[in-house]
Design a binder for these strands. Structure first.
Lengths: 173, 173
DNA sequence: GGCTCCATGTAATCCGTTACATGATTAC
DNA sequence: GTAATCATGTAACGGATTACATGGAGCC
């Protein structure tokens, strides 16, 4: 079967514990967001498609009087997820507007190039901080691979921020 | 004015020398591609829109009998590009399917997680090699910022590959 | 004659975000 | 009471890829 990577994120998120669409969004925002985001506009329709395809199964799980549907992975879903995990990764993209601006910044004054580097640096440091704030919880959960990925995100953000620093020095030299 | 970043890439590419859509595609593929790609399906329609908006100007420049239109930036276009360069960068995204797989690889054998890391590593090394192959030419051109960005791409790809290496060791420990 | 590169474009489709709409529950 | 959070969804739109279609030029 050929699903979008985002469908597999959802499948992965319900592979241990059943979750509602709302919870899945929160899970993504606290874990894969920095390298794979997902919005409600994707999650809810995708959950329906996955249910139709028999890869997840929804069941009513109201909290008090508030309606709520949680989705659990099925045997077929688990097999499909496993298959996907075993296929070599394909998509690998980056869209970094700051680098684009830096690339063309030759038509500005050098100090303005420095401005771009600083903006990128601040951004990355902010991301690094956000990710660091999640680290203690991830350590407690003692979940090897998610922790590895989180720490990778921290390292990467910090590396990028440092690169901006070095390039700023190079521009000013 | 509010254009898409891709529109600014195109604007930037014609800001020094006029170019055809075909040439712009090649330029992008040899420079910004690793952090901002663009396809023909975007470039040709966007060139028309930019021409309508008066930011570029097309003119016939046939090669032999083969029709060919090159686009040059206008004064308005140059001002618009400059304005954009001075606004703080916004978009910053990553989509890395390999990290997604690694994140969920807990349901596989450890050796299979290693496989994912190796695949990501090979990919990154291949990119690093491609970018390194472009370096001599970029050095000759002696264009500060494009060279800086290119070298940033090389460093980043190498950093990522090394991270995969380290994580492989950590998984096997 | 056939391959590769130059050159331009469109149509279908997908993926994804944003905005909108609605409403219950909980904490202050 | 009101703000934040939980909860579910849809519609409009935009951005981008892919496939398709066409054809000239240059080289072996």
């Amino acid at each position: 079967m050929e699903l979008s990577p985002t469908a597999y994120v959802i499948l992965g998120m319900v592979s241990r514990t059943p979750h509602s669409g709302y919870e899945i969004k929160a899970l993504v925002d606290n874990s894969t967001r920095f390298f794979w985001a997902a919005s409600y506009g994707q999650i809810y329709p995708e959950l329906k498609r996955l249910a139709e395809a028999g890869l997840v199964e929804g069941s009513d799980a109201p909290r008090g009087d508030r309606k709520r549907t949680v989705y659990a992975i099925t045997k077929t879903g688990r097999a499909e997820l496993r298959d996907w995990l075993r296929r070599p990764p394909e998509t690998s993209e980056m869209r970094e507007e700051g680098l684009l601006k830096l690339f063309f910044a030759g038509m500005l004054e050098p100090e303005e190039g420095v401005e771009i580097l600083r903006a990128m640096r601040e951004r990355r440091l902010a991301v690094a901080d956000q990710l660091r704030a999640m680290e203690p919880e991830a350590i407690e959960k003692d979940d090897d691979l998610p922790l590895m990925v989180l720490q990778g995100g921290i390292e990467f953000s910090q590396w990028f921020a440092d690169w901006c620093d070095r390039m700023e020095a190079r521009l000013l030299a």
